[in-house]
């Protein structure tokens, strides 16, 4: 078996190359389409072709000359980064406790976070609106960060505690035997081992925040805190933009770029973490 594999290495490479090509086609066909659409000129818009033949950056100039869009982009990046950081901070410690420690009320905490994860967010929109208005954080970054953290927490806790269960905890016991406190055991031994899981979770949480449409739309009224997905929905009105199709496509391309950068950045760490044998040392 091993011998055949070695002999067939070029063929195996070709085989995997073909499989990879299928994955790339799957991932990029709709993406390239929307990029191509964003570059189409008015004359080309209705030819129904996949690729544009005479690309123009008009739609991009249009959306970037619009302060509402650039402001929304800044809001999206700031709000999502802060939310992810805080949700990870809070979620990691809770997940560690849930996966590892014995304490009263653990089941209730897990049940409560499942409840939060399951509740249809549409039903929370009306009451959250009145609460944020009442405490004066309506239409601010904080007004979106707080609900984003809340709805990221169940995902963070659930995913992280699943990861934490797979960690070789004998090491923690060994550290404790060597005189480490529970906190030291967590900080020095387990946290480095848990990093791949934490970074995977960070990606999931950030994308969740970035994706949100409903809260961004209903908990903002001005450009102060409105994020891009919500701003995008205003393109449909076609009042600000003459060519909504290309403008929507261009905005779609722009809000994809920060995510791709983010994923690229963390991807390296995840791959390194998973392949360096840190999990199964």
């Amino acid at each position: 078996m091993a011998a055949t594999n070695t002999l067939e290495t070029p063929r195996r490479k070709l085989y995997w190359g073909a499989v990879n090509a299928v994955v790339l086609i799957y991932a990029f066909v709709p993406v390239i389409w929307i990029v191509s659409l964003s570059l189409k000129s008015d004359g080309e818009l209705n030819n129904g072709r996949y690729m544009t033949t005479s690309p123009t950056f008009e739609a991009y100039q249009q959306i970037f000359s619009n302060d509402d869009f650039t402001r929304a982009l800044i809001n999206s990046i700031g709000i999502c980064l802060i939310s992810t950081f805080l949700a990870l901070l809070i979620g990691t410690s809770a997940a560690y406790a849930i996966a590892r420690l014995q304490f009263p009320g653990k089941k209730a905490i897990v049940g409560a976070s499942l409840l939060v994860a399951m509740f249809p967010q549409i039903a929370l929109v009306t009451p959250l609106f009145s609460i944020t208005v009442a405490i004066g954080i309506f239409d601010t970054w904080l007004g979106l960060i707080i609900p984003y953290i809340t709805f990221a927490l169940p995902l963070a806790i659930y995913t992280l505690s699943a990861f934490f269960r797979e960690i070789p905890w004998e090491l923690e016991k060994a550290a404790k035997m060597d005189g480490a406190t529970p906190y030291q055991a967590f900080r020095k031994v387990i946290a480095p081992l848990a990093m791949p899981g934490v970074f995977t979770t960070a990606i999931l949480v950030f994308i969740n925040c970035w994706n949100d449409f409903l809260f961004a739309l209903s908990l903002t009224t001005s450009t102060d805190a409105r994020t891009v997905p919500a701003a995008l929905s205003y393109f449909q009105g076609a009042t600000t933009f003459e060519k909504p199709t290309q403008a929507i496509a261009a905005a779609a391309v722009i809000i994809t770029i920060p995510i791709v950068i983010f994923v690229l950045f963390f991807q390296r760490r995840i791959v390194a973490g998973l392949t360096s044998g840190a999990v199964k040392g």
């Binding site: 994706n211 995008l232 995510i259």
Partner: peptide, 24 residues
């Protein structure tokens, strides 16, 4: 072959905002 490329690009659909994908 190209593990990093595949791993990263496979995440692109998930990374794209639902509304954007739906528009596409």
């Amino acid at each position: 072959v190209g593990r990093g490329l595949v791993r990263t690009s496979a995440l692109v659909p998930y990374a794209i905002v639902t509304v954007v994908a739906a528009f596409s």
